[in-house]
Computed example of a mutant assay.
Amino acid sequence: MNNIISYGEILWDLLPSGALPGGAPMNVAYHLQKLGQSPALISRIGLDKRGKDLLTFLKTKNVNAAHVQLDYHLPTGIVHATANVHGEMQYDIVSPVAWDNIEVEDDTIPLVKQADYFIFGSLAARNKTSRDTLFTLLEDANTKVLDINLRAPHFNRAIVESLLQKADILKMNESELQLIADWFGNFKTATDRITMIQQKFDIPNIIVTLGADGALMNTNGNLNPHKGFKVKVADTIGSGDSFLAAMITSIIQQRTPDETLTFACALGALVASRSGGCPDYLPDEIHELINKQKQL
């Protein structure tokens, strides 16, 4: 029984240092699995070596890939990733690729109906086939978690607004918050932007990641901040994805908003201190980081 479905892109990040398995939905599923949840992926790969290698990777990480579809025409997704002068990753997301072509299969809707959480993003909505499938599945999804992931030029306002209207939980970063808020007016503070989006789209839970400065969580109008954890950053790939996995796990475990934010920020920091989106770690290391900060 899979309690969480992660929908969308799986791919290879082609970094200067080499190729790493990636895609936010896959990264989130990996971290959910590490945290003791039972996620399943809905995605699509090509009939090529990259696709085969992704399946092998998922199998070694015990992530359910039974619903990853095979495409006979399009290749497995790739992203050319390079760091800018500030150390932030810049992504050239190749298209069209297999995950642009995710279809509704016989077992897809029953799978989504039985899951407690359905995680999706805006990137998988860039192509009509995967977008239509996404909106079909959202009709039957239970708690809908939007990890917005705005990557120019792979989104447009109308589709993003349609996705926001579906969300029960919304996660975004600071620049995404500002970009969306600016569509509707001139808001001076992050709190004002969050409040406007929460009210306009009726989203109970909004989480905004602030990089090294931690995160904000607004639950039904109550704002909780966390200042984050100081670590030596290896790269930021997958940090936000691990943050989301920790958030959902904490919500399932009925932790308080403060405990939820602390746990999520700690895992995000731990992952940022290691290379790649899916580094190995033990859950105990998250608690060690939290306890270490408490002692400071």
Rank of each mutant, 00 (worst) to 15 (best):
M89K: 06
D284W: 08
A115N: 00
D241V: 05
N3E: 07
F155N: 01
H67Y: 15
L54F: 02
Q198W: 07
G51T: 01
T209W: 10
N62G: 10
T191S: 14
H287C: 09
A152D: 12
H154P: 01
N64W: 10
I148T: 08
L146Q: 01
P204G: 07
E139C: 12
Q165P: 03
A125W: 01
A181S: 13
Q165H: 12
Y7C: 09
N2M: 11
D132H: 14
K128T: 12
K49L: 12
I119Q: 05
D92I: 15
T60H: 12
L282V: 10
G228W: 02
K144T: 06
L54Y: 03
V28D: 03
V231R: 07
M247W: 13
N220A: 11
P16E: 05
D280I: 09
V160W: 07
V79C: 09
T56Y: 13
A29Q: 03
L134D: 00
N62D: 13
G51A: 02
L270E: 03
T133H: 10
P25N: 08
D132C: 13
G22H: 02
L35N: 03
A24F: 05
D182P: 00
R193Q: 15
L210R: 08
N220Y: 12
G238A: 06
I252W: 08
F155H: 11
S38I: 10
Y117K: 01
L261S: 05
A124Q: 14
M247R: 05
I251S: 06
W12S: 02
T191L: 13
N142E: 10
N2P: 15
Q165L: 10
A124L: 11
D192A: 15
N142Y: 10
I119K: 01
T60D: 10
F184Q: 04
E105C: 14
Q295I: 14
L123K: 03
L163W: 09
P21N: 04
L74A: 06
N149Q: 09
N142C: 09
G51C: 01
D132P: 08
D140M: 12
A246S: 14
A125E: 00
I197V: 10
H80F: 15
Q199I: 08
I93N: 06
A212D: 11
L74M: 07
A215H: 07
